[in-house]
């Protein structure tokens, strides 16, 4: 599972990065890598079976806190 995730990410890099380098889109490259890093961490955690807290529960708590 984890190897699949890594493979997918390598695939994404192989697709996007050469074009960005050729066009010298450095800023875009940085944003891309940053986002990809976030995505990578999240999906690796998910693949390893890390239990994330429920997102909508979090929003519920937040909304109730603000309204109070």
């Amino acid at each position: 599972m984890i190897s699949l995730v890594i493979l997918t990410f390598l695939g994404i890099i192989a697709i996007e990065v050469p074009g960005l380098i050729r066009k010298k889109y450095w800023k875009e490259l940085i944003v891309f890598l940053l986002l990809l890093f976030i995505a990578f961490i999240a999906s690796i955690l998910l693949a390893m079976g890390f239990e994330f807290p429920s997102l909508i529960k979090g929003i519920e708590i937040l909304i109730k806190y603000i309204l109070r």
């Binding site: 890099i13 192989a14 380098i21 050729r22």
Partner: peptide, 13 residues
């Protein structure tokens, strides 16, 4: 990794 890409780019060139 990066070098590999650069080499590939050179080849494309």
């Amino acid at each position: 990794m990066f070098r590999f890409i650069m080499r590939k780019l050179h080849f494309l060139h």
